[in-house]
Structure formats: structure tokens, C-alpha cells
Design a protein around this nucleic acid. Structure first.
Length: 580
RNA sequence: UGGGGCGUCGUCAAGUGGUAAGACACAGGACUUUGGUUCCUGCAUUCGGAGGUUCGAAUCCUCCCGCCCCAGCCA
């Protein structure tokens, strides 16, 4: 009568070390059971898929543990930040499906309080104004193995430091003339603790505070205090900040802030065939190597959106990759899988011919047009059916015909019969060629009137089914085929002093014009997604697609077993030749 | 030669002393009016390595090896 626990029915609840820490904290009664997290981007660029992982983590934690997640702009470097980025970040987080409600904050709103904290640090004898130049500071800092030396300005009086810091704020000094440093330990084994700079002078307008300030706090000083001010319980960041945790804790301990959040670090996302450092993405945009932040080849959220990705697919991806501390690189194929999985369920099917080859059905009555029934989505009968026009002249895909087909090629060839999806069986009787080039310019076929709809009453089978578009009714379109932006699995890999842009994939964008779509597509609106049968998922371009000028982006191809077989056959042939 | 981290299938990743989940990829097969979808099947006798503790170790201990991060007045 012993019944094992009935767990198989439960869907696997995502588990990771961050969730475990929070669950344990909750169980221990820490923070009065509150969970407060934050997503803290610097508005100096557009959000990318790595940020999406962080967004899903922070907002997901708040959602699942009954807490809240703030959106906070970490805007302490006026030279790089702008309102354009703030706007794009808000749009992208919302599009991802997350809601910060009224909890949007800016570190720049804390400048006055941060200044007050700095004064307190000086008063406690824990900070000083240093006149060493940037170069000298670096020199005095020591190296990884050698301790640093104290600055000659390290021991001035509190009163003098207070006066100097006030004058820094008042604008009495030029950029770089001096900085405010925390007074910790120049011999600390952790270099971050060797009297880190916490304020620098920058006579630069800030996109939000304008000219109110000419001194700006550094990240290490700003971040922990902003977290504390907002009552964070868990401050989740990426691995490279692990060294900074000691300073994060030192500042809050020294200032004795009532709220001291726990910093937890996780591994940032890396994706194969992709670069994800903001510096590099900015470079791609600035050098015009892509059309902009939302170029459909960019790994930005706006790029994926324009490419035709759904928030669901991206969230799902972020769920599947997990959260851990080991530096890792996720296969871009997983991302594509997540997209197909989502689009397969929700997307209407449609026929489109990208590289048209004209076919004349010689025994089909001239001038006759039939409306044939087609299923919109075999995955979801509720999506209904539509009618597509058929006539004597149609287009099929160029690569669906071969004059001298290899084994296992199931498509059209001289004398061979195939099915036109939802239409008729046709047999190729002649391939018309350009006498000059030998190129096949048109196919002449016969059709079997008995096979209307695609089934033969005599039970006869065909091996292949082709998509097609009636020449008379086709809508013209431009279709952009995208591939990985980089041809290297790891574009960052520095080999032979090559720059990452040397690995840009020359075939990452192929724009096809003169594509033929079934007529219903003429009404497509920007952002509409479809499956072009046998080809892939496509999305009407949000910028360039308009009535009379259709532009579609390929979001992702369908799985292509034939391509795999063809590739294998080629490999076999090669192997055979070299073997003799 | 300093400090901080990390090493489980090709790629991610569970596992927290009781005898290696899952996903993607890959390989077979079934079904199919998308060479799509779906469905079966296979895919780590072994957890960076070597010792040790234990009835029992991916999990504990010791040593070794490898990889990542830190010397911005960036975040």
C-alpha cells in the first residue's frame, strides 16, 4: 500500500541557487519576509538578450516570492547617458512583459543624498580628497602582487577634506584636479579596496540634472547606497562584480545604513555567434556595420522584436538556460528552438515563393481561376481556413526543381509528379531554358484534374508537396533573409590580433526582391507574423513594410531535414572520391 | 608569485552522503497534403585529476590541474 510521492505530474519548477538563497532567507524570517529586487541598467545603450536574462531573473523572483522589483537607472556617468536610452529601456522591459508599476527610480535623483553620505564618510575620517593625477593614482595603487602606497594627501584633516570636497562641488576645480577617495587600505589584497575613488569632477551636463552638478559619484559608491535607500533585500548582479562586494559591504557598514542588502552574483549570458558587450554593440552601431540598435541581426531586445521574436519565446529561453555561477556560452540554437516552439502554435500558415520559377500548366484552361481551401494552422483548427486562387500560370520555388536530381530529392524533376499544396498533382513535361545561358527559365507541366485539393482518387502517392503562388494574383514583396551576424562561434576570441568585426558574417543579410506572396498578404500590417510554409517564420518589417511595398523579415527558418540530408550526401560523395 | 570565483554529456543545467533529472543538439524509427509539427527509441557505469574518510562520495577532507574576474577619475 505504499505509494511513492506523486511528483511526476508537477511541472519542473525552475530552481537555481539564487532562489534557494531567497527561500532560505524567507524561511529564516529575514527581512520580515519581504523580497525586493531591482533591475539597474545604465542608460548608455539599448538592452540586449543578456539584460533579458537579468530582467527575467529579478522580476521573476519578485513575482514568485510575493515581492516587488524596481526599475532603476544607474545614471552616474553623464558623458555616456541619454534620455533616448531611458525611453528604449522602458519600452523593452514593458515589451518583455514586466511591470515596475510606480517603482521607477534614478540614481541621479539621489545625488544630494549621496553627497550627504560622502560628507558623513569624510566626517568619520573614512574619505579624503586626493590631488594625485589619474596616472599617479594608478601608480600608487600597486599591482596584483605588490601592495600600493599611501597618497601624500591621505592624512589631511577632516576639516580640510570637508572644505575641499565642498569646493569640488562648487566648481572650483578643473576636471581631474582631484577626487574623493574612500580611506581603506592601500595594501589590501583585493585591489578594489585600495582607497577606491568615489567621486570625480566632470564639468559635463547630465541628461537629467543638467548643470546642477560638476561632481559625480562612482558606481561602487552609488549602487550600494541606492539599493539601501530603496530597501532592497537582494541585490543581484553579474560575476564580474564579485570583487566589488567587499566594498559594497564596507560602505554600508561604515555608514551604518539601516538597510544592508545582500549582493548575489550570477554568470552573465554568452551566446554563440553573438557579441553581447555593450561596448561592442555600440561599435557596431556607430560604425554603421548594422542599420541601428534595432537591426534584426542585433542581439538587442529591439532587434529581436523587429526580427519577429515574441516576448514569450525570449522569456522561455531565459527560463531554460538557468541561472548559475559557471561562465558559460549558450548555443544560439536553443534561442531559435524557443522561437519556433512559440511561433508554431500561434502563427498562421501562408504560401510565399522567394525565388520564383514560372510554371505553366499546359492542360489547364486559359483564363480559369479556382479558389482552393487552405488550412490556416494545422496546430490550431480554431484558426480556420482561407481560399487561395489557382490559375494556369503559377510560381514555385526555384530550388524545388532539379533537372538531374540526386537520390532522395523528392521534389519536381522532368517527368516527375508532385503535389501542389491544397491544389493538384502536376507532372513536369518540359524545362524551358535560356539558349544562351542554359538556365531553366520556365517549366511546362500537366495537371491531373482528378486530384483537386491534393488527393488522388486512385490512391496514387507522390513524394513531394510544393508551395506555390498564382502568377496572376501574386503580391510582390521584398524578403530579408537573416543569418548569424558573426561567422565565428566565438567572435570575441582574439586570435592573431584580429578584431571582432573581422568575423562579421558577410551573408548575415540577403535581401530578395521580386518575391511572390499569396494575395492575402497584401494586407499585412507591420509586425504581423506568419509561417511561410516550408521556409520559415516571417514578420512584416515594422519600419519598412507598408501597403504597396511589402517587406518581410525572416525570423527563423523551419527545421530543414532535407538540407541535412543534402549536406550529408555531399559529404559522402567527397569521402568516396578521396577514398579512391 | 596577490585576491575573488568556477570546473557534472557536444551545449546549457539539476543534484546539497544513499548509488547521475531535464532541455537543446545529435542518431535511428513511426506518422504526415509543410522533408514542418507530433510521437517513440538511443545518447555520462560516471561527475577536471590523484589520494583519503565512509558500508556507501559528484556531494566531506587533502593535494594537484585547468578556466574566468580584478591594477577606469566606466558600470
Amino acid at each position: 500500500m505504499t505509494t511513492p510521492d506523486t511528483k511526476p505530474a508537477e511541472a519542473a519548477v525552475p530552481t537555481n541557487f539564487v532562489r534557494q538563497i531567497i527561500a532560505a532567507d524567507l524561511a529564516a524570517g529575514k527581512n520580515d519576509g519581504r523580497v525586493v529586487t531591482r533591475f539597474p541598467p545604465e542608460p548608455n545603450g539599448y538592452l540586449h538578450i543578456g539584460h533579458a536574462k537579468s530582467i527575467c531573473l529579478n522580476f521573476g523572483l519578485a513575482r514568485d516570492f510575493g515581492g516587488v522589483c524596481h526599475l532603476r537607472f544607474d545614471d552616474t556617468d553623464p558623458a555616456k547617458e541619454s534620455m533616448e536610452y531611458v525611453a528604449s529601456i522602458q519600452e523593452d522591459v514593458r515589451w518583455m512583459g514586466f511591470d515596475w508599476q510606480d517603482r521607477m527610480f534614478f540614481a541621479s535623483d539621489y545625488f544630494e543624498r549621496l553627497y550627504g553620505f560622502a560628507v558623513r564618510l569624510i566626517e568619520a575620517g573614512k574619505a579624503y580628497v586626493d590631488h594625485l593625477s589619474a596616472d599617479e593614482i594608478r601608480e600608487y595603487r600597486g599591482t596584483l602582487t605588490a601592495p600600493g602606497r599611501n597618497s601624500p594627501y591621505r592624512d589631511r584633516s577632516i576639516a580640510e577634506n570637508l572644505d575641499l570636497f565642498q569646493r569640488m562641488r562648487a566648481g572650483e576645480f578643473e576636471d581631474g584636479a582631484c577626487v574623493l577617495r574612500a580611506k581603506i587600505d592601500m595594501a589590501a589584497p583585493n585591489i578594489v579596496m585600495r582607497d577606491p575613488t568615489i567621486y570625480r569632477i566632470k564639468h559635463v551636463d547630465h541628461y537629467r540634472t543638467g548643470q546642477a552638478w560638476c561632481i559625480y559619484p562612482m558606481y561602487d559608491f552609488t549602487h550600494c547606497l541606492s539599493d539601501s535607500i530603496e530597501g532592497m533585500t537582494h541585490s543581484i548582479c553579474t560575476l564580474e562584480f564579485e570583487n566589488n562586494r567587499e566594498l559594497y559591504n564596507w560602505i554600508l557598514d561604515t555608514l551604518k545604513t539601516p538597510c544592508h542588502p545582500q549582493q548575489i552574483e550570477f554568470a552573465r549570458l554568452n551566446l554563440s555567434y553573438t557579441v553581447l558587450s555593450k561596448r561592442k554593440l555600440i561599435e557596431l552601431v556607430d560604425k554603421g556595420l548594422v542599420s541601428g540598435w534595432d537591426d534584426p541581426r542585433m542581439p538587442t531586445i529591439s532587434g529581436y522584436r523587429r526580427r519577429g521574436y515574441t516576448p514569450e519565446a525570449i522569456r522561455n529561453f531565459c527560463e531554460r538556460i538557468g541561472v548559475a555561477k559557471a561562465a558559460s556560452t549558450v548555443d544560439i540554437g536553443l534561442m531559435e528552438f524557443c522561437l519556433r516552439e512559440d511561433l508554431n502554435k500561434r502563427t498562421p500558415r501562408v504560401m510565399a515563393v522567394l525565388r520564383p520559377l514560372k510554371v505553366t500548366i499546359v492542360n489547364y484552361p486559359e483564363g480559369q481561376v479556382e479558389e482552393l481551401d487552405a488550412v490556416n494552422n494545422p496546430e490550431d483548427p480554431g484558426m480556420g481556413t482561407r481560399r487561395v486562387p489557382f490559375s494556369r500560370e503559377i510560381f514555385i520555388e526555384r530550388e524545388d526543381f532539379m533537372e538531374d536530381p540526386p537520390k532522395k530529392f523528392f521534389r519536381l524533376a522532368p517527368g516527375r509528379e508532385v503535389r501542389l499544396r491544397y491544389a493538384y498533382f502536376i507532372t513536369c513535361v518540359e524545362a524551358v531554358k535560356d539558349p544562351a545561358t542554359g538556365e531553366v527559365t520556365e517549366l511546362r507541366c500537366t495537371y491531373d484534374p482528378q486530384t483537386r485539393g491534393g488527393d488522388a482518387p486512385d490512391g496514387r502517392k507522390v513524394q513531394g508537396t510544393l508551395h506555390w503562388v498564382s502568377a496572376l494574383h501574386a503580391a510582390a514583396a521584398e524578403v530579408r533573409l537573416y543569418d548569424h551576424l558573426f561567422s565565428r562561434e566565438n567572435p570575441d576570441e582574439a586570435d592573431g590580433g584580429r578584431h571582432f568585426t573581422d568575423h562579421l558574417n558577410p551573408k548575415s543579410l540577403e535581401a530578395l526582391t521580386g518575391c511572390k506572396l499569396e494575395p492575402g498578404l497584401a494586407l499585412a500590417s507591420p509586425g504581423d507574423r506568419f509561417q511561410f510554409e516550408r521556409l520559415g517564420y516571417f514578420c512584416a518589417d515594422a519600419r519598412d513594410c507598408r501597403p504597396g511595398h511589402l517587406v518581410f523579415n525572416r525570423s527563423v527558418t523551419l527545421r530543414d531535414t532535407w538540407a541535412k540530408i543534402a549536406k550529408k550526401e555531399v559529404g559522402k560523395k567527397k569521402g568516396g572520391v578521396s577514398g579512391t
